[in-house]
């Protein structure tokens, strides 16, 4: 379970997240929607401490994962990122073979011997619904795959180190409808083993894949509720205006 408590976040003077609190249950899919620049990615990145890499940022409040504050001194960021995988909008495979892409995290973390790695690679590719398509060309370069396949490869790479949480930032927005629907199916099937948080600017996608949806605007979390409720009868007028396209 992931919990944010009274999160405020600043880029220099810019107040990017304003007093956000929400809880994401284990084995659910939570979607964040909202106009671009509203802070969805910033909020998502907090949970694997990706914002740490940016100079001049400031965070107050608590980010808890399974009850533990991930910003406390005792947390090792590398360990944290094993537990919390991330997938980005643009598939970013390494210039390596398909096999080595998936094996990468296991190797750098010294996780297991050769046969373990081989097994994890297969399992991860299978979980990412890519195994059948690549099992005969594992030694080929990852760049030979299509955009949709590359994205599933990145998901497999994230899964290989056995995380419990998967953060996805617009994972399908650069993909065609068929690849998009494969990713969405994948999200569905992964939810039994992972807690998934996905940022999407595609509202229908949020509606299709998520259990809960958070609507952000200008750094505020305007509404956070069951996806079904959000898309049938949202509480807030701002939410309604946004999801029905009457914005502004």
């Amino acid at each position: 379970m992931i919990e944010a408590k009274n999160i405020d976040f600043y880029y220099g003077d810019f107040h990017a997240l304003k007093n956000i609190s929400m809880a994401m249950e284990a084995n659910t899919v939570t979607a964040f929607i909202g106009p671009s620049g509203c802070g969805k990615s910033t909020f998502l990145r907090l949970f694997n401490r990706m914002n740490d890499l940016i100079d001049g940022t400031r965070l107050t409040g608590e980010c808890l994962v399974d009850g533990q504050n991930i910003y406390s001194k005792s947390i090792h960021v590398d360990e944290l990122r094993k537990k919390i995988g991330m997938v980005f909008q643009k598939a970013n495979p390494f210039p390596k073979s398909i096999f080595e892409n998936v094996a990468y995290g296991l190797r750098v973390n010294n996780m297991g011997d050769k046969s373990f790695i081989r097994q994890r690679v297969e399992e991860s590719l299978a979980a990412a619904a890519l195994w059948d398509e690549v099992k005969d060309k594992l030694k080929k370069s990852a760049f030979e795959l299509s955009g949709g396949q590359q994205q599933r490869l990145c998901i497999a790479r994230a899964l290989a180190v056995s995380p419990s949480i998967l953060l996805m930032d617009e994972p399908a927005s650069a993909l065609d409808p068929i690849s998009t629907s494969k990713i969405e199916e994948l999200i569905h099937s992964l939810k039994k083993d992972y807690t998934i948080v996905i940022v999407t600017h595609n509202m229908q996608q949020a509606a299709r894949v998520s259990d809960k949806t958070g609507f952000f605007m200008l750094g505020d979390l305007i509404e956070f509720s069951d996806t079904k409720k959000m898309f049938l009868s949202p509480e807030k007028e701002q939410t309604q205006n946004y999801i029905t396209g009457r914005f502004g």
């Binding site: 229908q204 959000m230 898309f231 049938l232 949202p234 309604q240 029905t244």
Partner: peptide, 9 residues
């Protein structure tokens, strides 16, 4: 138009 919220209702 895949209506949602008030439009769907």
């Amino acid at each position: 138009f895949s209506p949602v919220a008030v439009d769907l209702r």
